[in-house]
Nucleic acid binder design. Structure first.
Length: 497
DNA sequence: CGTTCGTCCATTAATGGACGAACGGTGCCTTAAT
């Protein structure tokens, strides 16, 4: 069966969306492929369809458990039974059962962390993998170097699995990030399918405020006036909570905050309520977004400037998936970016921490027990992220005890890598700040960051090219509808209690 | 780097200011002991 009839038969579509066919052709002909497709263009089809065309199992590396669960569910709805997410949600016996019949699955979703498990790797080696997929592949570059080092190991995993055809999927990657992906995954002369990151229906607005109070007033004004639903991004969980509370006090009742401090259950509930219009405004941290497929988000406000352009583009890209006019507003106060310098420092280990940590390993003459390791962590006041950063480099010392020369080499390497990483992150923060402070077209600025050129500005482009935020305010009739709805809510609550 | 929180001390006795420390986003995976 050819891919067009598969598309019709398995997915019920008559034609491909832009980019899909090229990417699918590329992977089924056995080429390693890097695909950058805009959000909402159906990236998952790019590996789902080949799953039916090719013989064997498609292995999908996914950054988030919730994303995996989501995709498993979607495939099940389409009638696919041979699909599983192998992760910590499964009980010990379930895991064993899955591993025992791994070859029977058509789609297996897995996290990068799980792929360092020896037993899992052993089993994966024995089955035939038709396609190795890295979903949200920019995570390799964005998270791999510090936050989730197991992303850096995917290249080795790929090698161990006999270099299956590989597909790296993302919506936002600069040329440098794509090179990073190719190098770290050890891709072999990959084909690249790159589509624009531009979203012409999103008006981009940067607004400068002089102090915190003004920022708060502006935010409350905007959320009352703008067409909803919308998302507000914060770089602080506390502020996200506080502002959500203030909005509720101001009479907006469909508001919630969302961040990693919430339980899994609460997070799922809020996502669902937002999806089904029971919530209109989410005060969120960067935890909110990946895998949220809501079409009609009308605004995205940034209360804090993101740490890099990639994050900004991902976050504003959650607006206007339906193609209708939407707005992105960044509220900027001089010095906002400093928060990110602080966050960065607490993620990277200091010289003293590095030296002492490896001195301890050397002194012990063998790999420390779990309890010993926690002791070292506590005495050096290492955060979990810092510890993992160090452990990633300490990996070779697990096999045989540390030699002095080797330890010196490793510590030097870590300090080096850390400094490179710090410099890179500082550069990204500065680039973001420059964009905020610039007096040229915002869209052009974003596109040039992604090595693209802007042919012509859309009608409502950005604050530099002109139009007015008011244009995105809800009309009087919409406000009336809203209050009527609230009345209905109140009445139904009264009656059905 | 800027904000917030806790502690200390000085006063006409329960506030207030000064000062320093801590905090500030992201997510996998925990095979232990009740």
């Amino acid at each position: 069966m050819n891919i067009h009839s598969l598309l019709k038969k398995k997915f019920g579509y008559n034609s491909f969306r832009p980019g899909q066919e090229e990417v699918i052709q590329s992977v089924i002909s056995g080429h390693d492929t890097v695909a950058m497709l805009p959000t909402g263009t159906g990236k998952s089809l790019c590996y789902q369809l080949p799953g039916y065309y090719l013989k064997g199992t498609v292995l999908i590396v996914s950054p988030l458990l919730s994303l995996m669960q989501d995709q498993v569910e979607q495939l099940k709805i389409k009638g696919e039974k041979q699909v599983v997410a192998y992760n910590s949600f499964l009980s010990v016996s379930e895991r064993k059962a899955v591993l025992d019949k791994l070859h029977r699955y058509r789609f297996v979703f897995i996290s990068p962390e799980m792929l360092k498990n020896e037993r899992v790797l052993e089993r994966l080696k024995r089955i035939s993998i038709s396609l190795f997929v890295v979903d949200e592949a920019h995570c390799i570059s964005q998270w791999g170097y510090d936050f989730r080092p197991d992303y850096l190991n995917l290249g080795n995993v790929r090698q161990l699995l006999g270099k299956p055809t590989t597909l790296a999927l993302t919506a936002t990657a600069t040329k440098k990030v794509r090179e990073d992906i190719i190098q770290l995954l050890h891709l072999d002369q990959p084909k690249e399918w790159i589509f624009s990151v531009d979203r012409p229906n999103i008006y981009i607005h940067v607004e400068h405020v002089s102090d915190m109070q003004e920022k708060e007033v502006r935010l409350l004004h905007l959320v009352q006036q703008l067409q909803k639903p919308g998302i507000i991004y914060f770089s602080s969980k506390r502020l996200a909570d506080e502002m959500a509370k203030k909005m509720r006090q101001a009479g907006l009742n469909k508001v919630a905050s969302y961040h990693a401090g919430l339980d899994q259950d609460e997070r799922i509930l809020i996502q669902q309520q937002f999806l089904y219009q029971q919530l209109e405004i989410i005060c969120a941290t960067s935890a909110f977004g990946m895998g949220i497929n809501k079409e009609n988000v009308r605004f995205v406000i940034h209360y804090h400037v993101p740490a890099q352009m990639e994050s900004y583009v991902q976050e504003i890209g959650r607006a206007g998936r339906d193609g209708n006019k939407s707005i992105a507003i960044l509220l900027y106060m001089e010095g906002d970016e400093h928060l990110h310098y602080g966050l960065m420092e607490q993620e990277l280990p200091t010289d003293a921490q590095i030296d002492t940590f490896f001195y301890e390993l050397y002194r012990l003459k063998k790999w420390p027990e779990e309890t010993m390791l926690t002791e070292i962590q506590q005495s050096l006041q290492l955060s979990d992220v810092q510890l993992r950063f160090l452990l990633h480099y300490a990996e070779p010392l697990k096999q045989r005890p540390a030699q002095k020369v080797q330890v010196e080499e490793i510590t030097q390497q870590i300090k080096n890598d850390r400094d490179v990483r710090r410099q890179e992150r500082v550069r990204k923060i500065q680039e973001m700040k420059q964009w905020v402070a610039s007096f040229t077209c915002r869209r052009e600025g974003i596109l040039s960051y992604f090595d693209e050129r802007l042919d012509h500005c859309p009608l409502n482009c950005c604050d530099q090219c002109g139009t007015n935020v008011d244009f995105y305010y809800q009309t009087k009739s919409e406000i009336k509808d809203e209050s009527k709805e609230q009345w209905e809510d109140i009445l139904s609550q009264l009656f059905y209690r």
